[in-house]
Structures are given as C-alpha cells and as structure tokens.
Nucleic acid binder design. Structure first.
Length: 646
RNA sequence: GCCGAUGUAGCUCAGUUGGUCAGAGCAGCUGAUUUGUAAUCUGCAGGUCGGGGGUUCGAAUCCCUUCAUCGGCUCCA
C-alpha cells in the first residue's frame, strides 16, 4: 500500500502502482471525466502513469493551467499525426502548448507549402483521428533508441533536439501511428478533444534563429466542448473590435500615410488632444514630485552616440547618420534622450546637496524598426517617450528607485490599468559581450533593482538576457486586446553612462564623485500608451482624457439659438463641447454620438430652453435627468478632479 | 529583414469558371421633414479594382514584379 496526500491535507491508502486517473475514478466517476493531468510530488504527470510510492497529489481540471497544457500539448500531437498522414515525409520541429492553444513547427519538405486554405482538411483529419479514442502511450527510452528511431524516420530536427538531451531523461509518446519525442504529460486518450480549430499559419525560424531555416508554424486551439470553442471565437472577435488600429480610424485619432512613410504616425486632432491631456497631466504630477522639465533637439552629433555606446550597438540597424555641407560632420536622429540629458547635467558643476536631480522630457525619438515589426501605434519608427533621468548619489539610489515604482503604480492606478505584470530584466550571463560596463557595476545595479522591488513587495518575474545594453531594468507590461504583452513603464539603473560622460558631483568631502543614473518612463511611449489605452477602454476614454467632454443635441432647429448659448458657456468654462445641429431626429443624433463615445450628451428642447437647463445623458448609461448649465459645468469639473486625484 | 496571406469608393464589404461587373450599405453632398433619449425620407456624387509590366480579341478576375497592410518569426536602446 502507498499513502497519497491530497491538497486539503487528507490522506488515503491505495495499492501500489495506482494511477491518478484511477484515484479520481474512486473519488467520483464524474471527476475522472473532468481531470486532464495530475501533479504528483510537485511534477505534472500523465493521469495514467502509475504511482509507486507515497506521494502528494493534485488533480487538474480544466481551470488549471496544467490541465489545459496537457490538453493542448496532446492536441499538438494529434495535429502532427493528421499532418503526417496528409503530408507524408513531413518533418517536425517543436510543438508546445501555449497560453491559448498550441502550435507545431513543421517542415513540409522542399517546394511544399501549407497555407491557411489547407487547414480545414487538417482539422477534419484531426477530428477523425480524435474520434478513434487513440491512447497516448509513454515510453522511456535510451538516447540511442530515440536517436535510431528519428534517424530512421529522417526527422533531422528531432535528432538535433535529442543530441542535446541527456541519456536517461528521454521519453517518447505514441498515439495511433504517430510517435513523438516528448517530455509529456499527455491526456490518456484523444477522446476529450472534441472541438478543434486551427487558427493560423505563420513562418517561424527553427530554434528562433534567423540564420536557420524557416519552418511553417501552425497554430490551433481545442476544447472538450464545442460550446467552449464557440465562446473563445466570440471572445477573439470582441477583442478584434477593440483593436486600436480600428478604433483609431473610427474615432479619428490617428492615421498613417505611405507618402509620409511607414511607421510614422500622424496624430489627428482628437488623438492629439488625448495625447496632450496625458502630457499636461503627467507634467503637473512631475512638477509636484520635484522633476525639472527640459527640452532637447531631435538630432545629435554622431560622436555623442559613439560616446554613449548607442552607435556601436545600433548604428548599422538604425537610421543612418546624416551629413552636412561641412566635411566629416555627421548627425543622427536621436534614438534616445539620455545622452542629451547627460550633457545638460554636465553643463554645470553639481554639489551632493542638489542630488537627486530629476530631469524629464517628452522627447520624440526615432528608431528604424524592421518593416515586418511595425504595428499600429504600438511599434513605430517615431515616438515620444515620457522620459526622465534621475541623477543621484549611490546612497540615494534605492530610495529613488522605490519612489519611481510608487509613481508608476500611482499612474497605472489613475488610468485603471490593474492587469499589469512587472519583470526584472537582467544581463545574459552567457553573453556578456552584448553589454557595456564592468561586471562590478552590473552586479551592483542588478542587486539594487532586485532589492528595491523586493522592498516594495512588487510581484516580479526575473528574466535574464532582457536587460538594456547599459543596465538592468524593471519593466511594467500590460496586455493588448489580443493578449500580446507590451512594455510600458521601465526603470533602469545605470552606472555606465555616468562613466562614459564623466558625470561628477562634489561630495561633502570636496572630492569628485560619480553619480548613478536611473532611466525611467511611465507611459513608455505616448504612442504605445494611447494604443493600449484605446484597447483597454474600447475607445471610451475617461472624461479627463476625452477630446470632447460633451455634445449638445438640440431636439430641433428651433432650439439652436439656446444650444449655441449653452455651447458658448461650456467652452468658455474650458469644457470642450460640440454641437450636433443636423436636421436629424433626436434618436439618430443620440445613436451617432454614442458611437463617437462622447462622454456626455446634452439634449435640449422646449423644456430646457425655458428653464435654462440641459438634459444630461451619460455615454453608455442613458438619461441622467436635467440640471442647469452651470451645475453641469461644475459637475464635469468635479468629475475630472475626482478622476485625476487619487 | 524572413515565411504566409491580403489589397475593389472615406469606412465595411459583394463581384460565380476572364466576356455590360465596376456594385451595395454606411459616411458625404441635395432637397423635404422640425423631430424628446440608439438609425426619417428623396435625389446626387464617389473608384485608372494598391502601383508597374505581361498573357489574351478581351483582365478587378490569370502570370511576373513592386509597394503597403494583416498574422507570426527575428529584433526592440
């Protein structure tokens, strides 16, 4: 007998060799139908794998990621089997489960392609195979056995993977006529895979290396019930409606022009208003927090970037330097504001008493992003950073860093971004040549960030290899409508640029000392931030950000005079207001202006004209009753104040 | 940059195997209507079917090329 401990702490005895599935069945047959994987002694296992000793166990139903992963990973194998039967000789790369579904990287063979048009056939084959209730069989094999199998099969991607594995840790999974190298775990059978949708085909470099062959990546998702798949597809459709590129066009926020150039956003008046509202608001917050606002040019001498290291690092992959009539003189579009800010720091001597110095700029920078990477406002070649650099003494660094975390969290809260993640990005220990600066400085900086984030009780993930070339960073990321993660705010500790620019301050000992720099943004780029804001709000901006706060809708032309009077009063009170005096019925005007996402609609007819009031209708919520024009103006101002002060 | 797909009026889309196929709805402009909380009616105007080249008696439709967009990959100071 073995003793099995359950998550609630309860303990039961079973025969040795019992599987998680059998345990589930003994608890309830219904449960057995709903579990897809089990964690045994901390490791996720196949449900059918025998347990041979005392163990702790946790059964995973669909709600657990481990269950979905097993489900989708098994689906990837199922898709592979379908592909192999439809495309004999096809080779397989990797085929993991992902956050929403799974993919498999395949090489259909020279000259052969798989396109989206072919997916339906693969899908049908998968359904056919799944219905056979094929059993997923695990087999642990030696490295040589695995090697022999895939060499014979001619799948050189798999043999490449195997050659890097350690003997004794290799397992194969077989279902039907398909065997794959795989760690598992998998479902017991293909039976639960009922609803199948292959979503897209894309190219993907083998092992993520752009010098290696490009494989065909097929994405798909599966569910145990058709209804769940339908719901997912509806959700995807809803997300597409929130796409900032679509809403940006609908609401006339921004546009692009091929004549101007790809990746160069043109802000339309309504978008520019939102952008300006963000700048004005953040500026006032920054001033209260001791920041000094500076402004620097859009270009800088190429030597500036040679000194900072940017040229060496990005010179060949960015906008090329431009020359002047002067022989040998070259300038670059600025890709970063920090070198300029360093020179502002250097323009006067500094005492330890004036540190920390907080220098902020809404600085527009230019980066030559690869053409395939451009994406609406989130990835552009010209964008404005809400950039700032804190120059501080080493002993101030940690407090300064923590105060920036506070500031970022404050702004995220104001803007209702509750679903963010924080990531600490460190140097890649195996590729130190990618970075500038000494090991000592890097270690110091990395420690600073980890400690500061820890003291703020910030939940973070640590990712080596994601640091900037001059220093480690703490990034705040949010997701867009389709689930892609975007970096917004970032805080970076930098000991290196101060050395390169020879920044100093006089200490209390009257000796020269080296300050530490913190680079930080809150929005990141205003372009990207507005994009994420659009997708978060589906274009229903908070009142304080909305380009227009209200629109006046006269019931008929008879009330236009009064409407114009109201318009004047509100605009004079700095409440940007529109009027819709078209010869349309009120229902039509309400509909159109609701769709424009104007926060308040003010309906004006006989009653209002006589009593000097407006009938207020809130966007998305409906009739709010009448109030005087003055009361409405005060109400709007109070609302804005409430929104921007926490 | 790489792989794949797409590209028809301002927007969303029709356009069967190449042969009155250049269309619809919304938006716009006209005129009528003067309206009480999510679409009033009439008429008009809008496009070298992304650009260039080719095949053909004939191309939105087939081929080549180029540009852009979309989905990924790589990259992201």
């Amino acid at each position: 007998m073995i003793r099995i401990t359950f998550p609630d702490g309860s303990l039961k005895e079973y025969n040795k060799g019992i599987s998680s599935l059998e345990i589930a069945e003994q608890i309830s047959p219904q449960l057995a139908k709903e579990v897809y994987a089990a964690t045994v002694n901390g490791e996720v296992w196949d449900l059918t794998r025998p347990i041979n000793g005392d163990a702790t166990i946790r059964l995973h139903k669909w709600e657990d990621e481990a269950a979905r992963h097993a489900f989708w990973h098994s689906s990837a194998h199922l898709m592979a089997e379908a592909l192999e039967s439809l495309y004999p000789g096809i080779k397989f790369g990797i085929g993991p489960a992902i956050e929403n579904g799974f993919y498999y990287d395949v090489d259909p063979g020279d000259g052969k392609t798989i396109t989206e048009a072919d997916l339906a056939a693969v899908e049908n084959k998968m359904k056919e195979l799944a219905a056979k209730k094929l059993v997923y069989k695990r087999k642990e094999v030696s490295k040589k056995e695995a090697m022999d199998y895939f060499t014979k099969k001619g799948d050189d991607y798999k043999t490449e993977l195997i050659s890097e594995l350690e003997d004794g840790t290799i397992s194969l999974y077989t279902q039907g006529n398909f065997t794959d190298l795989c760690r598992g775990p998998h479902l017991p059978t293909t039976e639960p895979i009922k609803a199948i949708k292959l979503t897209s085909v894309a190219g993907a470099y083998w092992r993520g290396n752009e010098n290696k062959k490009m494989l065909t990546r097929i994405y798909g998702i599966t569910y145990p019930k058709q209804k769940m798949l339908d719901e997912y597809l509806v959700l995807l459709e809803e997300a597409r409606k929130r796409d900032h590129r679509r809403i940006g066009k609908e609401l006339e926020l921004f546009t692009f022009s091929q004549k101007v150039g790809m990746g160069l956003p043109l802000w339309l008046p309504r978008g520019a208003d939102i952008r300006q509202n963000l700048i004005d608001y953040l500026t006032s917050v920054l001033r209260k927090r001791g920041y000094k606002i500076v402004t620097t040019p859009h270009i800088g001498n190429v030597n500036l970037y040679k000194l900072s290291g940017h040229f060496e690092k990005y010179g060949t992959s960015s906008f090329r330097p431009m020359s002047t009539p002067q022989e040998g003189e070259q300038f670059m579009l600025k890709p970063m504001n920090c070198p300029h800010h360093c020179e502002i720091y250097n323009s006067t001597p500094h005492s330890y008493k004036e540190l920390p110095l907080r220098m902020a700029e809404f600085g527009t920078v230019y980066r030559y992003e690869q053409s395939g990477e451009l994406h609406g406002l989130t990835r552009v070649r010209s964008f404005t950073q809400d950039d700032a650099h804190h120059f501080c003494r080493p002993d101030q660094l940690r407090e300064e860093f923590k105060s920036i975390i506070d500031l970022i969290l404050y702004i995220l809260r104001i803007l209702n971004f509750n679903d963010y993640t924080a990531q600490i990005s460190l140097r890649d220990p195996d590729n130190k040549e990618k970075y500038i600066g000494t090991d000592e400085n890097w270690e110091k900086a990395e420690r600073d960030i980890i400690v500061a984030a820890g003291e703020k009780n910030l939940e973070t993930t640590v990712v080596p290899g994601e640091a900037a070339f001059y220093g480690p960073k703490l990034d705040f990321m949010v997701k867009d409508a389709i689930g892609r993660k975007w970096q917004l705010g970032t805080i970076q500790v930098d000991y290196n640029l101060p050395e390169r620019f020879d920044l100093t301050y006089n200490g209390s000992d009257n000796q020269k000392h080296r300050p530490v720099m913190i680079h930080r943004t809150i929005f990141g780029s205003l372009e990207r931030f507005v994009a994420v804001l659009i997708e978060n709000s589906a274009g229903k901006f908070p009142l304080w950000l909305a380009p227009e706060k209200a629109v006046i809708l006269p019931i008929s032309e008879k009330f236009n005079d009064y409407a114009l009077k109201v318009l004047e009063i509100l605009n004079n009170s700095d409440i940007c207001t529109l009027i819709d005096d078209r010869s349309e019925k009120i229902g039509k005007k309400i509909r159109d202006n609701e769709l424009r996402r104007i926060p308040y609609l003010l309906i004006i007819g006989e009653k209002e004209a006589v009593s000097g009031t407006v009938a207020v209708r809130k966007q998305g919520e409906g009739d709010r009753g009448s109030m005087t024009v003055e009361d409405f103006a005060n109400f709007i101002k109070a609302e804005i104040k409430k929104e921007t002060a926490l």
